[in-house]
Write a protein that binds this DNA or RNA. Structure first.
Lengths: 345, 345
DNA sequence: CATGGCAATGTAATGCTTTACATTTTGGAC
DNA sequence: GTCCAAAATGTAAAGCATTACATTGCCATG
């Protein structure tokens, strides 16, 4: 079992210098036909493969970007990733996904890849920047780290961001329920630790208030973006014995969990209670009833974020702390119906 | 904007040699207290971070493993990933996810990371090994590449594998339908290109035959593991005008899509037709009705695969072309009911 | 035939860290 | 105070590819 061939082995076998081998690989037009053939044959004979660690060390870049995803299992992220990949790969960048599972240690670990020249840039889908990295950014304002936050903004937005207007979209959903005559509306929120939770809640509260409705504490339910927390929320509602007119869920997973539990108890959506979600994941279409929800332009979010990151890496434009806000809209399906007071006339 | 600090800068500032700085970082017990403090303070002052490219080059390994996933959006993979991460991170390995999207070019690109010492090993969830890599493995039987296939076997199994007995699990599902009195059973398959399709189909066909039932071509429907193909399959069934007793779907996504389309047409599951899925993804529990399906021990699959890979990397055991088969079982929910001929007595 | 210019190739420095081996320092025993 | 072992630290090579700069060889022009 012999060691891996190096560029030197290839050069020796082909009877040329290492520089020539390197040129065959990267700028073949500078090499004569005969030499090129000889080198290629030597490469085949030796089973040579480039050592990327050596190249990255020498070139001071890796042509890779790391994407931090809080929850791989959440289908919401996959279309964003598709957008990211489209742009990244056409720019010759490899994308590496780091699953953080909301774990600060992992976030740091993956970001160290960036700081340690394993990656040229980072895309944050997790809504959180570890303190150590944030401190580094503040300490060295000149040397901007190529990081862009996506979808979930940071508490302290010190890097560019691409996402939607969450408060506005939540307002849109709430207004839609109001327009259908619902008054007693409950909002099933995400975890308090998530920045989106505050944004969506404020959009909800603001719209309710504008309609002259008070948001009392019992109109806010706490979830954590999982199906299970949607199921649990339904249980709370059922136990309380008073079904609201409608429930605005901060994401589709929770809405789907909620509806499944309601169905088990014979509570019909939308006849007995209307439900609206957020995100428009694939399964919202197949839910029973099909879920009315807020659609985010996920592919475009991923694309724009990656473009911004690439500019940051190239360093040719000063994107500053650019905030890109893309439009979100409402898709009407079957989980919201007009309130009885509209139909019972 | 100054360049990044190197270990040399730290050494100079601390008044020691680079070797000592390196020791402070990796084997601090070999360094005296005072020196250690001085070095740490120099590290802070200079904002030093290790250059991983240089370390990887020197150490000839990266402490990273790359996981090839065909479809990030498929929730089936996330729990496998969780298992992988658990084992990998306790072994100090970083895991990097490469999304291949069934694209051979991407598969090669990510595997080149492995061959090029950007990663120490690879876990294949995509059921496919690019020809170039396969050729390399065959050419150099001595130098075994640290690769393990997971869940989806390779057409030509030249690396260790961890998964379930797919034909057996499909037989289990089919037998369950037979036991409930169903005779006219349709199997909605995955794409022909996928190795699982053949395995599951053969388990289905074998069990039908054992029950004295012929599997005619019209009892096999083609899908591609997506929700949409499940919806399309339902449309085919509806258009044909003859609803079978039951449908065995090769994965849950298709079963869910199928059921949603059936519901739109007023066809009730399980009263009018029974449906059984495969994989037991999270949304199978919230489907209406809750989906009866085959459960795979995903976390364990991920764990075992990673253990095997780590052994391969360490090279201390000869795992050979070990095939690890884990048990799959059936979870009864509400989408399968006894055939009328049982209940109508 | 001499010269300039270009194409093709070579030389050697560079990127940063780890680590085997060498050297110095420290502390204790006598 | 001497000596030795152990602890602490230093020196320098190695890991592999890229690339600025230097060199060689050739052709065409005058």
């Amino acid at each position: 079992m012999n060691k891996r061939a190096t560029i030197g082995d290839v050069a020796q076998l082909a009877g040329v210098s290492t520089a020539t081998v390197s040129r065959v690989l990267h700028t073949p037009e500078l090499v004569s036909d005969s030499t090129r053939k000889a080198v290629h044959s030597a490469i085949n004979k030796t089973n040579y493969t480039l050592n990327l660690a050596a190249r990255n060390l020498r070139q001071q870049r890796s042509n890779a970007i790391v994407v931090l995803v809080p929850d791989i299992g959440n289908t919401f992220f996959s279309e964003i990733l598709a957008g990211i990949e489209r742009v990244a790969s056409s720019a010759g960048q490899t994308i590496l996904i780091g699953h953080t599972a909301h774990d600060q240690l992992r976030e740091e670990k993956y970001l160290n890849n960036l700081l340690n020249s394993q990656a040229d840039g980072a895309l944050l889908l997790n809504g959180h920047l570890p303190d150590s990295v944030a401190a580094k950014i503040r300490e060295t304002p000149g040397r901007r780290l190529p990081i862009v936050s996506v979808s979930e903004a940071l508490a302290d937005q010190i890097v560019p961001h691409v996402g939607i207007d969450n408060a506005g979209a939540a307002a849109l959903a709430t207004q839609y329920l109001l327009d259908h005559g619902h008054r007693h509306i409950v909002h099933l929120r995400g975890p308090a630790s998530n920045i989106l939770t505050g944004q969506r809640t404020s959009g909800f509260a603001r719209t309710m208030k504008a309609a002259g409705l008070q948001v009392s504490p019992d109109m806010l339910l706490d979830g954590d973006f999982t199906i299970e927390s949607g199921i649990a929320a339904a249980a709370v509602l059922i136990a309380a014995g008073l079904m609201p007119d409608a429930v605005f869920c901060a994401n589709d997973e929770m809405a789907i969990g909620l509806m499944s539990r309601l169905a088990e108890h014979g509570i019909r959506v939308p006849q007995d209670v209307s439900v609206i979600g957020f995100d428009d994941i694939a399964f919202s279409r197949t839910a029973q009833p099909a879920l009315t929800t807020i659609h985010q332009p996920r592919a475009e979010i991923g694309e724009r974020a990656t473009q911004t990151l690439l500019e940051l890496i190239a360093g040719d434009t000063d994107v500053g702390n650019l905030i890109t806000t893309l439009p979100a809209d409402l898709v009407e399906r079957a989980s919201v119906a007009p309130h009885q007071r509209f139909t019972a006339t």
